[in-house]
């Protein structure tokens, strides 16, 4: 948001949106398969599967289009502060 005028690069592989998108995508595909091959509660599984797949696409697209930007010029003092406290 405020970093646009600074030098930045993309953060590494770790982006929680990718994780959420991946898990929801796998869940969606499994539910779709269950819905296709089993007649028990077919509508519930198919509809939820489609919604999960759509949510997955949303998160992955979001992560692609707006990656986490990290400023290049961080000094040591900034890094010593743990994120949790």
């Amino acid at each position: 948001m405020t970093e646009h005028n600074e030098q930045t690069h993309k953060a590494g592989a770790f982006d929680i949106r990718t994780f959420i998108g991946a898990l929801m995508g796998i869940y969606g595909v499994i539910l779709l398969l269950v819905g296709l091959f089993s007649s028990d509660g077919r509508t519930i599984n198919l509809v939820t599967g489609i919604c999960l797949a759509a949510a997955s696409a949303f998160f992955i697209l979001w992560a692609r289009l707006r990656p986490v930007r990290v400023p290049d010029h961080l000094d040591a003092a900034d890094m010593e502060r743990p994120p949790g406290h």
Binding site: A11, G12, A13, F14, D15, V68, R69, P71, L74, D78
Partner: peptide
Amino acid sequence: LARRSVSSSIDFFLSGRA
């Protein structure tokens, strides 16, 4: 992954703070 990134890469810390 969180654990590995903490020790090997500054990116994790920074994406944590960002």
